[in-house]
Design a protein around this nucleic acid. Structure first.
Lengths: 232, 232
DNA sequence: ATCACACGCTTGTCATACAAACAAACTCGC
DNA sequence: GCGAGTTTGTTTGTATGACAAGCGTGTGAT
């Protein structure tokens, strides 16, 4: 049998990749990695020079990111990287704690056996990444894991929402991933999800998914520092 | 006692309302009311002339609506009003059926008594609107009802998501609102939600909210016409 | 020290221009 | 008549330059 991890040779969409998309990806990446911290002011002219693009394209990209909630509009004084307050973060985790169980449920309903097998195989890779301890690798592997579940669930809309929500809390998550205790706990939780999925046990899978989000929330929100000014 | 329906004299935010926001509202409204049907191609030059704005501002508004999912990008051939496939609609209702119970739960947790009373009072207005049968009035009143719940829940992020999701299915909902049988059913379901909220009974309120979404879904998806081409 | 004013920086909006992608019409050879 | 290739027109993508308006800050006068 072929390696179930192998991608089915993606059709290679000949994406013309408009400039604004590249800009968006670049900025998203910067926020995700922490190169742009929450609260940073984004000055159009500076960004144009740094990215070497025209103001037109840049502004279109900014508008799109703004609509995604990643950037916040100060009234007439430009954009900043959205600062997620504690209350925002709690709300985001609360939303995730109903959305992710839904996705897992739909995965059980809709994913064909080969995707289930591939997920199982990938969960082993993820586990190894956790044990390896390389943060980069963990994050990448976990994202891949999520992608598989969301794709298998056949609910692209929820997938989209989740991507945006998790991006908003990426500053929090970055701190939480490096915690050793959280890592070993994550492994257990994920294995619970996978094993329930293998049995096609919807209720158990949902419960495991919810537990996983709840615990992530606890870990991410633990520091309990006073929350900053309002968000939007 | 003062009329609990009275608004507390909103602070009247001096919104400079950038042109692009007006454009967005205008387009959103057009889609919501059906003036722009799903699948309609949006040609920049035409819109500029109709709205009497420059291409720059228009394009920024379009990008923002695109990020919200209301507009879909054909590769290099412009934007269309997003066509929601049957599968998309099912997924949207499925998401709503977990999000709305969450919101209702948070309303029970967080809304102060006066907001609960105001909600109760408004539910009577909504009921009258249903009995009156004027579609415009029903929609407006129902939106107001939802706004109160979402605001009271203190979860602006979920509020935002719900607004976007419901806008996507507005073509479906428009057809469903006029159904007499659905209307009387709606009244009952909403009263169930309100009465559970009054008792501050989280579990019952959640259950009632979920039931309401499920039934809305059944009604909206009933026609069961073959779904069109892919969405995005 | 305070108030008012002026200046600079930044965003909001517009007009214009040109390249590139795409679709449709059109032409020419068979 | 018909198909292949070419031309043409429409539409989007990107860049540039310009100017008004909003906001913050510094300066100067009192």
């Amino acid at each position: 049998m072929a390696n179930p991890l192998a991608e089915p040779l993606n059709p290679l969409v000949h994406e013309p990749a408009p400039l604004r998309n590249k800009i968006m990806n670049s900025l998203r990446r910067a926020i995700e990695t922490g190169a742009l911290e929450p609260g940073t002011r984004l000055v159009e002219k500076d960004l144009c020079e740094k990215l070497n693009v025209s103001r037109t394209s840049l502004r279109e990209a900014l508008r799109q990111l703004q609509a995604e909630g990643i950037l916040t509009d100060l009234n007439n004084r430009g954009l900043t990287v959205t600062t997620v307050t504690r209350s925002d973060a709690e709300n985001i985790y609360r939303i995730r704690s109903v959305l992710e169980p839904l996705i897992v449920e739909q995965f059980v309903e809709n994913a064909p056996d080969d995707e289930v097998q591939a997920l199982k195989a990938h969960s082993e890779v993820l586990k190894k990444a956790y044990l390896g301890g390389n943060a980069e690798e963990i994050v990448a592997s976990k994202r891949d894991f999520y992608d598989r579940i969301c794709t298998g669930a056949r609910n692209p809309i929820a997938f989209d929402l989740l991507k945006k929500l998790t991006l908003l809390t990426s500053p929090l998550r970055r701190r939480s991933v490096v915690r050793k205790d959280r890592q070993s706990q994550s492994i257990i939780e994920i294995e619970a999800i996978v094993s329930a999925i293998l049995k096609r046990d919807k209720a158990a899978a949902k419960a495991a998914a919810e537990k996983h989000v709840s615990n992530s929330a606890i870990s991410a929100l633990r520091p309990s520092e006073g929350d900053a000014k309002a968000s939007r």
